[in-house]
């Protein structure tokens, strides 16, 4: 379960109002896509959900509780880049989350527990088509492969909420179809609530169950920083995603 409630949320940096009076309720397992002009505060909103930025005023609740002030395993994140660990192989990158939870002091698993974690990681690798690259380092992967790995990495701890900040923004348009399929599969398999920022309007309609548009309601031409952005359009998208047939690989992941 993860529903997100936003009540009269404001975010300011000094004199600059970034977000003003945001009100929102997002149900469990919703796939929210967010679009809006550059610099209007989309990433800031995501960072508040992540716990690395705090609201200036108002409330941001997950299941009725304030968002913790630190990132945690209940909220996964995929950045546009730089979120893989360059010193670990593909498989180790994927297993890291399991090793953190399974071994508090060494952060490493051994024996049967390692085999179990490796099996889970490998089935996920297969699902994202990276099985053959399991022993490579991130720097040896293409941009698309890196992003697929980053997405898989952030769902392996089965977060309630997955945050995606323009995850495909740096990728070739040709490969985004594959990426969309992967993200939808993982979403269905893992029962998450997803927030995804994108610059691609088509993508936002294709993927989401709900589309939020961030924009400024008011404008002061002499003081552009006076007013912040808020949700100006909140569009339910009635795609039949929940009833889509589960692809065979996903069944393996749900286990």
């Amino acid at each position: 379960m993860a529903c997100v409630t936003v009540k009269h949320l404001w975010k300011e940096y000094g004199d600059q109002v970034v977000l003003e009076n945001l009100n929102l309720h997002v149900a469990d397992r919703e796939f929210v896509t967010i679009i809006g002009a550059s610099g209007c505060g989309k990433t800031t909103f995501l960072r508040m959900l992540l716990g690395v930025e705090q609201p200036t005023k108002g409330q941001l609740l997950i299941d009725g509780q304030p968002v913790p002030a630190e990132p945690g395993p209940d909220r996964g994140i995929v950045f546009q880049r730089y979120s893989l660990f360059p010193h670990l192989s593909v498989l180790d990158n994927l297993m890291l989350g399991l090793e953190f939870s399974g071994s508090r002091w060494l952060g490493k698993l051994f024996g049967a527990r390692r085999r179990e974690a490796a099996e889970k990681a490998e089935s996920l690798l297969e699902a994202i088509g990276l099985h053959t690259a399991r022993d490579k380092y991130p720097s040896q992967l293409s941009g698309g492969m890196q992003q697929r790995l980053s997405i898989a990495q952030s769902v392996i701890r089965e977060p309630k909420i997955l945050l995606l900040d323009e995850p495909f923004g740096a990728l070739d348009p040709g490969i985004t179809a594959d990426m969309h399929e992967i993200i939808l599969r993982l979403w269905q398999a893992n029962r998450m609530t997803i927030f995804m920022i994108t610059h691609d309007l088509k993508e936002s309609f294709q993927l989401g169950t709900r589309l939020l548009v961030f924009d400024k309601r008011r404008h002061d031409p002499h003081a552009p920083e006076r007013y912040g952005a808020t949700v100006t359009y909140d569009i339910p998208l009635n795609r039949k995603k929940h009833s889509a047939p589960t692809p065979p690989l996903t069944a393996e992941l749900v286990r």
Binding site: E70, L84, F85
Partner: peptide
């Protein structure tokens, strides 16, 4: 990277 690691627990 550091934030990602924290979201992995």
């Amino acid at each position: 990277q550091l934030i990602k690691a924290q979201t992995l627990g």
